[in-house]
Simulated assay, not measured.
Amino acid sequence: MPTNEQRRAAAKRKLERQMVYRQERAKKRRILAVVSTVVVVALVGAGVWFLATHDFADGDASASETPKSEPPKVDIPTEIKPLAKRPTPLAEKVACEYRKDDSTPPAKQVNAPNGADIPATGTVNVTLKTNQGDVPITLDRALAPCAANSFASLVEQGYFNGSPCHRLSTKGLQMLQCGDPSGTGSGSPGYKFDNEVWPELTYGRGYLAMANAGPDKTDPKKGTNGSQFFIVYGSAELSPDYTVFGSIGEAGLKIIDDIARAGDDGSMDPSPGGGKPNNEVKIESATIVK
């Protein structure tokens, strides 16, 4: 039979076992609580992410992406303006002065055309083969014999082949500008010549005109036409400072209209206006149609 001392020792051991058991249970409860909290936080976070990224409207996650902005609508007139006529016809042949342009190196090496006895009657048909389609144009010698003669010479020398149309304007002045192989807007063929304009000259849809840099700095009475030209497909409230030397018919304008509707990148706003066409335009080749 156990003594009192033995009974007390046994009771003490039992109490110690109970305390250890209780401590282990408490530790397990704490671990379980921490794990449960982590799981709950993770589930809540996953739920927030799901709600934030999922589009419940149609069940398509891609629908929650920001839609791409559409280019602004371009209002293009459909009526082609009758080609301008000189108030006083020129002589059958004229002299043209093609002066060396030292302002910048030539965008592509070519020879200046002959300026003696240039015809001031008749037309020249040219096809601009672009990556967007063929654009037939007609050069009118009676309007601007020097510009028409220069353009035809550049075509024959392959100057425009592989060159971009670097500027599109859709607001106010509606035109596509081409003729600079460098694509910078400052390229020239290495020569320049004077304007062929008159005070009553106005512009409109279907006109082919020369771009210029204003009066010649060396002589304000002289012009700065080179190789750059623009095709007017819509409105063009311009002062009579730009030589009109030909026209574009319905087939070519349809292609230009599609280019215009795609808009521009706005890289040239506010001055001179517009920017590079969103649909890249490149003149792959230019040829005279015999």
Rank of each mutant, 00 (worst) to 15 (best):
R30K: 14
T224E: 12
C165W: 01
D140T: 11
A42N: 07
G47Y: 02
N195V: 15
V197Q: 04
G274F: 03
V20D: 13
E5D: 11
E24T: 13
E237L: 08
G133I: 02
T243W: 05
C146W: 03
M1D: 13
T123R: 02
T184P: 09
N161P: 09
R25M: 15
K28R: 14
M210C: 07
R8G: 08
S271V: 12
S163A: 14
K81L: 12
A61D: 15
K14N: 11
E16L: 14
P82M: 03
P240H: 08
E156G: 04
S163F: 02
S36R: 09
P136E: 06
A63Q: 10
E5I: 11
R261Q: 11
N195F: 10
H54M: 07
T184I: 05
P119R: 00
V34Q: 09
K68N: 11
P220W: 09
G185E: 13
F230P: 05
R13C: 08
E196G: 07
R86P: 10
E92R: 06
V38W: 08
V35C: 15
Y98A: 00
T224D: 14
R22S: 14
C165L: 07
F50M: 06
K93Q: 12
N195P: 14
Y207S: 10
G45C: 14
S188Y: 03
V48F: 10
S169L: 08
E200M: 10
R261C: 06
T78F: 03
L128E: 07
D180W: 01
V39N: 06
P89L: 01
V232I: 12
S235K: 11
P145M: 05
E5L: 05
F160K: 05
S271F: 15
E196P: 05
A107K: 01
T202Y: 09
L15N: 10
R22I: 07
A9H: 09
P164Y: 04
A260V: 05
A116K: 02
A262E: 15
A144E: 00
T123N: 02
G162D: 11
A260T: 08
T78E: 14
K282C: 15
A148L: 04
L139C: 04
H166M: 04
T53L: 05
C165R: 03
A236H: 02
E200Y: 12
A148C: 03
R8M: 12
K282Y: 05
P277Q: 05
F245H: 07
F230M: 03
G275Y: 03
K27E: 14
L173G: 13
T127Y: 00
